[in-house]
Simulated assay, not measured.
Amino acid sequence: MTEHTAPDSPATDSWTLANAKARLSEVIDRAQAGPQIITRHGKPNAVIVSVEEWARKTARKGTLAEFLLASPLRSADLKLERVHDAPHDELP
């Protein structure tokens, strides 16, 4: 990963916070091709991605019920016993 520092630098995916602020339009344009990492004090701090990438990464891939029904443990015939201990005292 290379740091983007000058307008004539080759395409990159990492920007200092100062450069990202100064060239936000370019950061956003480049995010259409791939994630853009913003660094602060030399450490990765944030990532800018396209709306399409965000939607793809955050899309729900089914319901919890579908996940549980598809579990390989569904037919494992597990024998579980519930513990009927008294509840713990509440903290003061």
Rank of each mutant, 00 (worst) to 15 (best):
P35W: 01
M1C: 11
R30H: 14
D89Y: 10
K61E: 09
D89V: 10
Q36K: 01
P7K: 00
A55D: 13
A76E: 03
D77F: 05
R23Y: 09
K43F: 03
Q36T: 08
L68K: 06
K79W: 05
K79M: 04
A22R: 07
S50G: 03
A46K: 11
H88A: 11
A55W: 08
T16N: 03
R60Y: 11
T39L: 02
L68C: 03
L73P: 03
D85L: 08
D85G: 08
H4G: 06
T16S: 12
E81G: 07
I38R: 01
A70E: 09
W54N: 05
L78G: 02
A76C: 02
G62N: 06
M1H: 13
S75F: 03
E26R: 15
D29A: 10
L73Q: 08
E26M: 12
A86C: 10
G34W: 01
K43R: 06
H41E: 02
I37K: 04
A31E: 04
S25T: 13
G42L: 01
S71R: 10
E26K: 14
K21V: 15
H88T: 14
V47N: 01
A22M: 05
E26F: 12
D89W: 10
L69A: 12
H4P: 01
G62E: 09
V27M: 02
I48N: 02
T58Y: 06
K79G: 04
A18R: 13
R60C: 11
T63V: 09
S50K: 02
A70C: 07
D13H: 07
F67T: 12
H84I: 05
V47F: 00
E3G: 07
I48V: 15
A33T: 10
E66P: 04
D85W: 08
E26S: 14
G62H: 07
S9I: 04
Q36R: 02
V51I: 05
D85Q: 09
V83G: 12
T2W: 14
A18L: 14
S25L: 13
T16E: 05
R74K: 06
L64D: 05
L91Q: 14
V27E: 01
E66A: 15
P92A: 14
E66H: 09
T63N: 01
L73D: 10
K61H: 07
L73E: 10
A59M: 14
I38W: 02
D13T: 15
P7F: 01
T5Q: 13
P87F: 04
S50T: 07
D77W: 03
P72W: 06
A86E: 09
E53Q: 07
T2H: 15
A65S: 10
P87N: 06
H41M: 03
L91K: 14
E90H: 14
K79H: 06
H4T: 12
S9R: 05
Q36N: 03
V49G: 01
D89H: 12
V47H: 02
V27T: 06
E26L: 13
P10I: 11
A33C: 08
P92I: 11
L78V: 04
I48P: 00
